[in-house]
């Protein structure tokens, strides 16, 4: 049995599964507590059932694509680091590329790499340390600064009475930036972004014309589908 095979036994062992279950459990617990708090206060600001339904659909549609790409990277990680660590780390802070490079950095410092036969349990421990320490650093600034920053931004938008204009400008500027950033890469990304944009404009327009409300509801999903089909037709 090679050192890496021994490592995989540890990596797929009960301690790592316990860590995995605790971590995913925490993620679910947090989501649950925020949803519950939101529901308790929903009546204060007139959140309707329809609003909630739309949110759930929008959240699902926006996640499908990226979730599938993570899936692909995740396969590579599982082969080297075992299922529970991969599952736990991909459920929390840090994207798949970060996790792969942090694990590799730990292995490198012990003189091996994550896909080599001499990836020992000690090297694996180094990988776990680096992945988790980096993860902790990503949490610290939110832990300490989000609350004071929230006070600050609220005070500013109160003072200027421009809260909504600020939010709308910020949304449009950040999405505009993402669009430009992708469109700049190659023609396929450009086409995808443009079709996505035009699709929503057209479906909204048609929805207003025909009074078909469902068209507006599904505009996002239909536009993305159209964009993906068109891009796949580009030779």
């Amino acid at each position: 049995m090679t050192a890496h095979q021994q490592t995989l036994q540890l990596a797929n062992g009960p301690a790592m599964w316990l860590f995995c279950i605790l971590t995913i459990g925490l993620v679910f617990f947090q989501a649950w507590i925020f949803l519950r708090t939101g529901r308790q206060y929903a009546s204060v600001c007139n959140v309707t059932r329809l609003d909630v339904k739309r949110s759930l659909r929008a959240g699902t549609i926006s996640t499908l694509g990226p979730a599938l790409s993570i899936f692909v990277v995740g396969l590579g990680l599982i082969a080297n680091l075992g299922s529970p660590l991969t599952l736990a780390r991909l459920s929390v802070v840090g994207n798949a590329a970060y996790e792969a490079s942090a694990a590799e950095m730990g292995a490198l410092a012990t003189g091996t790499s994550i896909n080599s036969a001499d990836y020992t349990m000690v090297a694996f421990t180094a990988s776990v340390w680096v992945m988790n320490l980096g993860g902790i650093c990503m949490l610290l600034s939110t832990l300490f600064f989000l609350k004071p920053l929230d006070r600050l931004t609220k005070a500013i938008s109160h003072k200027t009475h421009k809260g909504l204009l600020i939010g709308l400008s910020a949304s449009l500027a950040s999405f505009g930036y993402f669009v430009v950033d992708y469109a700049d890469r190659d023609i396929r990304n450009l086409v995808a972004a443009v079709i996505g944009f035009l699709g929503v404009r057209i479906f909204y327009h048609l929805s207003a014309r025909t009074k078909a409300k469902w068209l507006k509801e599904w505009a996002l999903a239909l536009s993305i589908l159209a964009a993906v089909i068109v891009v796949m037709l580009i030779p």
Binding site: P66, S69, N189, A192, G196
Partner: peptide
């Protein structure tokens, strides 16, 4: 094709927000 879901999504969301105020967009 899955790689192009994200740029399409960004374009589509930009369009949704642009309906609220075309000038701001």
């Amino acid at each position: 094709g899955l790689d192009y879901i994200v740029p399409a999504l960004f374009g589509a969301i930009f369009a949704q927000f642009s309906f609220k105020n075309a000038r701001v967009a």
